[in-house]
Design a protein around this nucleic acid. Structure first.
Lengths: 341, 341
DNA sequence: TGTTAGCACTCATATTGTTTGAGTGCTAAT
DNA sequence: ATTAGCACTCAAACAATATGAGTGCTAACA
């Protein structure tokens, strides 16, 4: 059987109607909804065909039709081809007060959630390989030493170390110089035994201190727990089909744990395939089998990127979601570009 | 009417039974449950009295009784008097891998949530008045300057500032020295116009840089958004009485926003009254009117403390909750003490 | 005087049956 | 190829009924 123009029109009409109402849509509705001027009976025949082809389904014998995942998929693919979703009058404004990355991200997650009425999650950029850009030890008070580690992309990490021995200003300077000399530009793998050995001999003593510093560096760099922020998790209560306590609980749990979702978003790794849509069962995550997940990638610099995800019901307003995401991306890009120059 | 020993026993039995089952408890149940060896009829009489006194209530004419807030209050107060909740065999173990404050707190929230099966929230310690302990500017690369600000209690804040002018190592040293001289030990209020004026004249030029630095300092210090972490929000689905979507949504929202809850926890400010219990309407928060909130305070050093909160249904297992909190407190105390020495 | 047995009464909940209406599939006519 | 008409299905809404846990009250009892 062939999926001709008319069938497509009807399918689109069914889906759009279902997106709005969340109720199965019947033939009479479509007969009036579209400008095809066809009677409900004709529509019924077409619907019957569409069902046979697997794009729609009846939840029970005498109900209207609802789209299957396959139907949604077709619809979304058509949407995506539609050139760019015209930048409409969405007012997305990031109130990035401070320029701190984390507050920008939190704000971004919130903006998305508020604008779309779905749940959102955003991850901090993940670096392929962290490299040390700069290192500094500073004596804060007689007992504590502050270590500041700056990684590629200006990620700043700091830790306080307790020290017993009193270090002179001079020693510190020497240590700083030495550490930077040996470690600058290295990633975690490259800090191997031989490098460490060199540092040890070079430093002459302070062995326990050095160990502690290296420890701190290691944990700072390997911290592969990507930071992630969620917003609007309670939006899911707005959609009756997610509203039973079992599902809601599972979903909220996923949003709280973040880990699984992060994996999902990063699963196709480095690819910058722009916007990805997972409809229902297409998602590998148990918790989101009844949902759709839309993910997008934002870039900070070459090879440094983070992800945004939107989670909502299957019948999410894909057009709006994709539009909103695109807007936000360009907004983020601008912020980071400004940040760079 | 008098609240004699027997009435108390019966009340306690009612509450305990209700805590377990969540169902209204009838006279026959109590008659068998307690070792008072009284018939259900007698119990009925007593219950009638207890109801008149306002400790219990019938949800509808022919149902068993459930405790009122007043009843819970009495029960909780009795509990609290019971010396210390004997340190039972709760296995609370903080896997504080890193010694970073935030990961300790996240872990603590999780431990609480897992152990009690309620939702938990923990706030990072709030300082009465932040004072500057130490300041440092460092050139990271030709365009960016790292400012590290260490506040009382070793809170480290850092920011990157973009600079156009190229600063010599010397200038930086001078600026560092100067800033520390003028600002060390001050809180935000004390950094007034006259101090700023002095810094400006002393620095000779770099006016825009100085402004930027002062800005950064101000935002770092006033950031009165107390960090807060939640865990186990989805536990609330385990209690049918909170499980309708309206309530659940409100609660989860409160847990997501965190702000209101933080205010609740800090509302009696500095007082270290140990463990506080808000039962139902006693809480000023709309979202938690159907819940109980138990809060506790942990101390890092004199005047520096944070809060932990547990949110669950009215019929929460107060005994367990209080016990768990006490355990956790001592655990935290130890960690921070070790951290100090 | 406190306790108990007995009984009529209440009312939420569960069960069952009935009605309604949206929606379908099929067939015959256009 | 399209449409009108009709019988059929079934979820959802509603009503009527049964069930049973639990109460309050009274009268008997220790």
């Amino acid at each position: 059987m062939e999926l001709d123009e008319r069938k497509l029109t009807i399918l689109r009409a069914i889906i759009q109607n279902y997106l709005e109402t969340g109720e199965p849509v019947g033939s009479r509705t479509i007969s009036k909804y579209t400008d095809l001027n066809l009677s409900s009976a004709t529509i019924r025949n077409e619907m019957s065909d569409l069902e046979e082809m697997g794009y729609i389904i009846q939840p029970h014998t005498s109900a209207g039709r609802i789209p299957t995942d396959k139907g949604y998929r077709l619809y979304v693919d058509m949407l995506m081809q539609d050139k760019q979703a015209e930048m409409d009058n969405l007012r997305i404004e990031l109130n990035a007060k401070s320029e701190k990355l984390d507050s920008i991200l939190k704000e971004a997650a919130k903006v998305i959630a508020v604008n779309t009425n779905y749940a959102s999650m955003i991850t901090a950029p993940r670096y392929r390989k962290h490299r040390i850009k700069f290192l500094q030890l500073t004596q804060v008070d007689p007992e504590s030493l502050l270590t500041v580690i700056i990684l590629d992309g200006n990620i700043v990490k700091n830790n306080l170390i307790h020290v017993e021995e009193d270090l002179t200003q001079e020693t510190l300077l020497k240590l700083n110089l030495m550490l930077n000399t040996f470690l600058q530009g290295l990633d975690l793998q490259e800090i191997n035994a031989s490098v460490i050995q060199k540092i040890r001999t070079e430093s002459g003593g302070y062995s326990s201190l050095i160990s502690e510093i290296l420890d701190v560096i290691a944990t700072s760099m390997e911290s592969e727990e990507v930071e992630a922020y969620t917003s609007g998790s309670t939006n899911i209560f707005k959609y009756p089909e997610l509203n039973d306590s079992e599902r809601a609980s599972g979903l909220l749990n996923a949003l709280e744990e973040k880990k699984q979702l992060t994996e999902l978003m990063y699963q196709e790794g480095d690819s910058d395939r722009g916007i990805q849509v997972y409809i229902g069962d297409e998602s590998p995550l148990e918790a989101t089998k009844e949902c759709s997940v839309v993910t997008a990638t934002y870039h900070i610099e070459e090879g440094v990127y983070g992800k945004i995800g939107i989670i909502g019901p299957r019948r999410m307003d894909y057009e709006k979601v994709v539009g909103t995401l695109k807007r936000l991306m360009s907004e983020l890009d601008q912020i980071f570009k400004k940040d760079k120059q």
